[in-house]
Amino acid sequence: MQKNRGGRHMKTILFVCTGNTCRSSMAEGLFKEMLKNRSDIQSEIKVISAGTSAWNGDRASQYAIAVLKEKGIDLKEHRSTALTLDLIENADLILTMTSSHKAAVLNLCPEAHEKVFTLKEYTRCEAEGDSKMDFFGYGNPEDISDPFGQSIEVYRKSAAEIEESLKKLIEKIK
């Protein structure tokens, strides 16, 4: 358990996707950048990411790096991390890119059910109500589509989708 400078428990937010080279790495980079502008909560939140099928040490995809560079965020030093039980247990909030990633987290650690959500599920306005979720993530509006292996335009769309949810997240946690 980490403590911040004020001695309070530092909250850990874990972003999860498949390979930790596209969506979750972009979410981590974007959210860290957003936190820089929030001195009121910046020192209280640790942001990390991992992948359900990641190889430890892989670089972020070239288009993920390029898209975040367009936003002034350097993702070149990012290295992928495989999702582990330890990461799940030590995270205070786990935000996955799809409902199938959420299922993978819960398969590893069923006890995490109170702290794991898809990013869109967690940031959705309560007024919208609960929509039925397709457990397998087929065409699910709760999912952020995977840009892996696609054009830079698809990466830009994915980054914009993530960023929109992260703007809601930063408002929700203040």
Rank of each mutant, 00 (worst) to 15 (best):
S145N: 06
T21Q: 14
K69W: 01
F136S: 15
P110M: 06
V154W: 01
E153W: 00
E171L: 13
E89G: 05
G29Q: 07
T123N: 07
W55H: 15
F148V: 13
L14G: 06
L87C: 08
Q2C: 10
M26V: 08
E121P: 04
M34R: 11
L93S: 04
D92M: 06
G139S: 11
L14W: 00
A60L: 08
D130L: 14
A91V: 02
H9I: 15
H113G: 07
K168L: 14
R79E: 04
E171R: 14
L95F: 03
E28R: 04
G149T: 06
L108M: 11
E44K: 14
I170V: 15
N56I: 10
D130W: 05
F135W: 00
S53P: 00
N4K: 13
E70I: 06
A127V: 12
Y155V: 11
K76N: 09
R156W: 00
S151C: 14
T52F: 09
K76L: 12
I13A: 02
P141S: 14
A159D: 02
I73T: 05
N90G: 11
Q2I: 15
S158N: 03
T81W: 05
N4L: 14
H78M: 09
S24D: 05
A82F: 11
I48F: 13
E142M: 15
I152F: 07
K71I: 00
E126N: 14
E44Y: 09
V105A: 11
G57I: 06
T18F: 06
R124D: 03
C109W: 04
K3C: 12
